[in-house]
Every structure is written in C-alpha cells, then in structure tokens.
C-alpha cells in the first residue's frame, strides 16, 4: 500500500543530509557541505528545516576560537527516515517506473 512520502524528507538536499547523518553519528557542517556539494546558504536553510521538524539536533560550539556547527540525527529523525524508506519501497514496488 502506498503512503505519502514525508515532505520534509522528500527533498534532495534534506534527504542527502539525513542519509549522511544516519550513516555517521555526528558530522560537522563542513563535512555535510563537502559530501552534498551544496552551497553554505542552502545547506543552512535545509538544516534549519530538519532541526525545526525535530529530525536533527544542531550543536553550535567553538573550536580553537572558530564557530563549529555539529549535526546529529535524533531518534525521531531515525524513525522518520526508516518510515520514509519503507514508504519509498512500497511506492517503487507498486508503481513501476514509466
């Protein structure tokens, strides 16, 4: 049965961020930027949206006098990601590619 895909996750950059964070425990903003090839501005906006949804937590701290943004997936985010993948699987199974 097809379920609607979570609109928060069904966006390329947000999904890329979540896929990275589900694979590693925590990652710095610079790591996410490098792996997603996104611009800093766009990445910040999408991180904020994921944070507002409660899918990730954002830790801001100073390392050697430089600000550092650390992102970590939350249990709610893990559940949402798993549900998204399940829905994706059922969608792909029920709707063959045209």
């Amino acid at each position: 049965m097809f379920h609607d895909l979570d609109p928060i996750l069904h966006q390329q950059l947000r999904l890329a961020i979540m896929s990275l964070l589900i694979s590693v425990r925590e990652a710095e903003f610079t790591f996410l930027k490098e792996k997603t090839n996104a611009t800093a501005g766009n990445l910040s906006v999408q991180i904020q949206k994921l944070k507002d949804a409660g899918y990730i937590e954002v830790i801001k701290r100073f390392k050697d006098n430089y600000p550092q943004t650390l992102c970590r997936i939350t249990p709610k985010g893990i559940t949402a990601f798993e549900t998204y993948v399940e829905n994706l699987k059922s969608y792909l199974n029920t709707r063959p590619e045209n």
Partner: peptide
C-alpha cells in the same frame, strides 16, 4: 520533479559517501 527513483539514488550515493 524529485522522483522516488531519484530519492533512492540520493540515499544510496550518500550512504556510499559516508562509508
């Protein structure tokens, strides 16, 4: 225009990059 097929590709690519 982001299809489920594309989203699967994004997930695979990112997991591969994080490996």
């Amino acid at each position: 225009r982001f299809s489920p097929q594309e989203s699967l590709k994004v997930i695979q690519e990112m997991i591969e990059k994080a490996k």
